[in-house]
Structures are given as structure tokens and as C-alpha cells.
């Protein structure tokens, strides 16, 4: 019962924060509402017995990625949202199209089927601690995607360094 209530609370706040994030005029407020959103996603992970993922969600997403978003906002020094011209002049068409897309999305939800269960039932995860279970699974069955993800991140880091390098390097 408590789990259901907590889930409802987390889901409600996530949806509300998502809506707020796209509606705030002040971009810093949008980023902060996304941070609250990430907190509640971590709460959802905790409800699913995945405490390692919850902590990693906070450390990586809320603690590092959002900070980088904030840095970009600060360096561009955006105090209010930038107003640009609308692509489509009429309101009615855009509302109709977005409602139709939303309807399609909602219509697909009942066809969602859960996948096959893995070899780690909840009792085993609780015995092993989620960190160890995740480590065992990640480094034995999923080592290749792990290495590929690491490589992609490395390319991103190198790209960032190349882009940010001072162009007027000394020639001698």
C-alpha cells in the first residue's frame, strides 16, 4: 500500500515537473525542475530495489550533467527565454497535430509487454546487494556494450578538447 502511494507521488511529481520544465520562462528554473524530476526518478529506482542506480542517477545526472546544462546557460547568460517566430502561423493546426501525436502515444501503451525475467529474482538481489548483482551482470554478460559506451564517451571527451582548444597555438 505504501509502495503504491509512493509510486503515485513520484510519478505525479515527475509528470508535473516535466510540464513545468517546458513552461517556465526563466531557463534556470526549468533546469531546477528537471533536477527535482531526476530526484523522483531516483525515488522510483529505490522503489524497485535498485539503490545503486538511484545513487548513480543522482551523482551523474543531477550532480554532473545538469551542472553542465547550468554552465551553458550561465555562459550564454540567458535570463529570459528567447522568443523566436513561430514556424506555423495558425494555432489550431499546431494544437491538432500535437493532440494527435499525444493520442497515438497513449494508444500504444496497452501493447507494452514485460520482457523475460532475468536470473536475479528480488530475494537474490537483496542478498547480494544490488551493487554486486549489477557488477556481476554488467562485467560478464554485457561487457561489450560497456566497452563500446566507454569508447563513445572517450570520443566525446576528445571532441570536446579539440573544439575547446586555443586556436592561436604557438607554431614553433
Amino acid at each position: 500500500m505504501v509502495n503504491q502511494l509512493l509510486f503515485l507521488y513520484c510519478a505525479g511529481v515527475i509528470t508535473a515537473m516535466g510540464l513545468l520544465a517546458v513552461n517556465f520562462k526563466n531557463p534556470v528554473y526549468s533546469v531546477l525542475s528537471v533536477m527535482v524530476l531526476f530526484f523522483h526518478v531516483a525515488g522510483l529506482y529505490l522503489l524497485l530495489n535498485a539503490e545503486f542506480l538511484a545513487a548513480i542517477q543522482i551523482i551523474v545526472y543531477a550532480g554532473a550533467i545538469l551542472v553542465l546544462y547550468l554552465f551553458v546557460l550561465f555562459l550564454v547568460s540567458l535570463r529570459k527565454e528567447v522568443k523566436i517566430e513561430r514556424f506555423i502561423a495558425s494555432h489550431k493546426i499546431s494544437t491538432l497535430v500535437s493532440l494527435a501525436l499525444g493520442g497515438c502515444l497513449l494508444a500504444v501503451i496497452p501493447s507494452f509487454k514485460l520482457g523475460a525475467k532475468g536470473q536475479y529474482p528480488v530475494a537474490r538481489v537483496e542478498q547480494l546487494t544490488h551493487t554486486k548483482a549489477m557488477g556481476l551482470e554488467l562485467y560478464s554478460n554485457y561487457i561489450l556494450p560497456f566497452e563500446i559506451a566507454g569508447l563513445i564517451l572517450l570520443i566525446a571527451v576528445i571532441g570536446g578538447l579539440v573544439l575547446a582548444r586555443n586556436e592561436k597555438e604557438v607554431k614553433e
Binding site: 539503490e51 545503486f52 545513487a55 548513480i56 543522482i58 551523482i59 543531477a62 550532480g63 554532473a64 546487494t129 544490488h130 551493487t131
Partner: peptide, 12 residues
Amino acid sequence: NIGLLFIFAMSS
């Protein structure tokens, strides 16, 4: 069980 990670999260 994730005491150390929790402290990291809070300090970040």
C-alpha cells in the same frame, strides 16, 4: 548498503 555513494551524491 550504499553509504559511501550516498555521501558522494550529497556532496555533489
